[in-house]
Nucleic acid binder design. Structure first.
Lengths: 228, 228
DNA sequence: CTGCACTTTTGCATACCCTGCAATATGTGA
DNA sequence: TCACATATTGCAGGGTATGCAAAAGTGCAG
């Protein structure tokens, strides 16, 4: 149980984030100033920057622990499971929270989609996790030793050792999985309150596993092709 | 042949962009002010904003016509070609320019990679095209009529008519293809000057077409699995 | 509860980004 | 040359973001 200090910090951050999203939903994110957010949250404008590095960060709501949880799930997945399935299951578990709090996620999706800058920023946070996820996948499929990532300063555009084909595969799988999750969330948001999010996620990954063939003529079913 | 006025405009824009990149390569993009860029280009700071919408835009160099060219290529692809292949060929054609002018792209890539904000901005420009690409794909596979996109103000987070499974598929294919292209470029950058970019792009799309199965044990070959 | 260490919040000053407006300079065509 | 159109510039003003030091709040002995 955290102390009062920690609880207050969380409350302040939550208040700022919620105020930001609600104001943005009404007036558009670009027209919501830091001063307005701070006032709605009951703190000074200066305090805003103690919690968010930039104006835009308040709308994105990045959960820094989510990435680590997903990677852990991928690491601990049953040995025989194909990589794509392992990632799918890991994402499905993490995204249960999304399905449960649909209201706030729908609101956030609307805000982000109205301003490309923010959408891009959200994707950027996603990309930062992408390299880590690629590393986890590489370890899982056995193309790289677990400890083999010395400095966090290493960038992706420099030559690396290891199996080249597997590096490309890991990178691709991590990137595509993240993109698939995003598309699933957006599509599910578009469907309205009644949609079944796990079903959408399953459908998206079924498309991927099938190699993205052209789906058969419209049948009215939300499911994709046979897959398997 | 353009008049003097047009030539001067191009020169001013080029001078600003070049000054921005050169200064950024030396001091880092974040430490290069609009004032410094303008002074190096021999214009007033105010003029900078007549050419670029933001400070960051000077470094990114977005080609606004690229998206439309790719979409046109997808529309005009042979009728029998699977959607994934059509998109792959369209991207391959467009990205020939990238492979040919590697020097400028590498320099730009170095600048962008030092500041995540700019990298994200560059990628975001492509993401904005995603919805348009999805529409093009939907038309191609026949799940939507060509003119059926009345106002450009319509957002993707609202319910839409049409075949639901196909909407999801089009969205997914557009998003995944863009992601694949990005991964290919990054991987090609990481390989150094000798790498064969078309080969990397082909490899990435082969992985996708195969359904992202775990690749066989490392053979040293950059190629993925058998694929088609 | 009281004092002390630590953290958070806040106001102030500062630099920079970006925009609208009006004045000025420059290219263009009659 | 003259008049028109467009580009450039200076200026004013608002918004973003950071560093610093004072003020307020929290946690923990004694």
């Amino acid at each position: 149980m955290p102390g009062l200090r920690e609880r207050k910090k969380r409350a302040t951050r939550a208040a700022l984030a919620e105020a930001a999203v609600r104001l943005a939903a009404e007036h558009g994110a670009e027209n919501v100033t830091v001063e307005a957010i701070s006032e709605a949250a009951g703190v000074s404008p200066r305090t805003f920057f103690n919690y968010f590095d930039s104006h835009d960060d308040a709308f994105v709501m990045i959960d820094r622990d989510a990435g680590e949880r997903v990677r852990r799930a991928v690491r601990e997945a049953p040995a025989g499971l194909p990589p794509l399935d392992a990632v799918r299951e890991a994402l499905a578990t993490e995204l249960v929270d999304v399905a449960e709090r649909q209201e706030i996620w729908t609101l956030r999706a609307k805000v982000l989609q109205r301003s490309p800058q923010l959408l891009v920023r959200g994707l950027g946070a996603h990309m930062a996790e992408e390299i880590e996820m690629a590393e986890t996948i590489a370890v899982r499929i056995g193309s790289r030793a677990p400890q083999e990532k010395p400095p966090a300063t290493a960038r992706s555009c420099e030559p690396r050792p290891g199996a080249p084909g597997h590096d490309l595969y890991s990178r691709l799988l991590a990137a595509v999985a993240g993109t698939a999750a995003r598309v699933a969330i957006e599509h599910w948001c578009a469907q309205g309150p009644g949609a079944d999010f796990p079903e959408v996620l399953r459908s998206v990954f079924a498309h991927l596993a099938a190699g993205l063939p052209e789906p058969p003529a419209a049948t009215g079913l939300p499911e994709p092709p046979p897959a398997g």
